[in-house]
Design a protein around this nucleic acid. Structure first.
Lengths: 211, 211
DNA sequence: CGGGTTGTACCGCATTTGGGGACGGGCCAC
DNA sequence: GTGGCCCGTCCCCAAATGCGGTACAACCCG
């Protein structure tokens, strides 16, 4: 088994040397690049004989943030797995990282041994996430607060579901066995209650879990 | 530390007894209910002095499937964490389980010790997922194949993004500094390319990552 | 009992949207 | 340089949608 080719991007010298010191000493790993900024990482990439398989990427970086760098990194290294490694565990940053193609998201309080485990897991086809992160990721799928609150009636929720499934008024009427006019009434009521003013907005907010 | 109150729902007698035998012997766990179907589980729930904190739920069950039972279980036990435990690792079942409020998703080939670890992790605020499952969950966030393929031009992708953000044609035109007529042309071209026929359908499919 | 909510259904009107076609400029490849 | 593709612009028409009403039966709650 060849060692896993690893790259580190971390601005804090102390943390960086700690990570490098530990990770590079592991027989399963080989650090091919250690950078203190996204710009430096991208600049040094072309010089490498062998590109990294895994990039451990900090989010808070001087200059370009890790989130901004992620798309660029995935563009240059489409087959590499990028592991976000940061103190931030807010839903928005997690969401943006995952959308940009991160393969994992570990928090900074993670012990070194677990970070190593995360690297191994990611090359093994997994998607390591710290507990709190995994929870937030799952939360993204769950029915939205407004959808499960008693703001909407049962029937109204059915209409919302049908709309969110991409149906037009007539199709909604067919699915729920209602008159088209009735569906229109429901839709209007729903718009009022949810404070939206178009179908698209409704579906969009529903998808983002902002509903 | 009180033991974690656990419930098992599993139809295969062999697997069920294996799980019960192992898990119930763990000092950290206490099985309060073992059922061979979702119906039996729901029927026996009211008899319990203490409701389970964690439910290990199989998907393939006689009668009501685990996916159908999940909403009912979450309704009766809103504070319990449900861990799906199944052989299925297809994206659709995973998606539906998570939407219905599952707190974790472990595959059937998982060693008993890891299942125990998953139970402990879930009460610790985590969201245990088998490797392949975690990958599929993350894949759900990534830009969709059709979105990143060269099917759409750069500009067209920008229009899609604007529409998905819930904007109307006029607003899209404003954001991208285009004529409304131009936006309409784009939208039509996009519909053709992506094989959809309404705004709602576009946003819907985009949200589901089916694009 | 009265009032609120829900489910159902209808009407009319202004706007948006979907579907079609047409035109010109720019860029790239053959 | 010519043909093709992407971009941006515009027009027309029919259907869908958003928005404002009205209406009534059934419920539940105080």
């Amino acid at each position: 088994m060849n060692p896993i080719l690893l790259a580190l991007v971390e601005d804090d010298p102390e943390v960086r040397e700690l990570l490098r010191g530990y990770l590079c000493r592991q027989p399963e790993l080989r650090c091919v690049l250690v950078a203190d900024s996204a710009e430096a990482f991208l600049a040094e990439l072309p010089d490498l004989v062998q590109p990294p398989q895994v990039v451990l990427l900090d989010i808070h970086l001087p200059g370009m943030s890790g989130l901004d760098a992620l798309p660029l990194i995935k563009q240059r290294l489409p087959d590499a797995d990028v592991l976000m490694q940061t103190v931030f565990d807010d839903a928005d940053r997690i969401y943006r990282a995952l959308c940009a193609g991160a393969s994992g998201y570990v928090l900074k309080n993670t012990p070194l041994a677990d970070i190593k485990a995360a690297v191994l897991e990611v090359v093994g086809g997994g998607a390591p996430m710290s507990r709190a992160v995994a929870r937030k990721v799952l939360a993204h799928f769950k029915p939205s607060p407004a959808m499960q609150s008693d703001l909407l009636s049962e029937r109204e929720r059915e209409v919302v579901q049908a709309i969110v499934d991409g149906l037009g008024d007539k199709q909604v009427a067919a699915r729920l066995d209602l008159s088209v006019e009735t569906v229109r009434t429901y839709v209007k009521r729903i718009y009022r209650k949810l404070q939206v003013s178009s179908r698209t907005e409704l579906v969009s907010r529903h998808a983002r879990g902002q509903l």
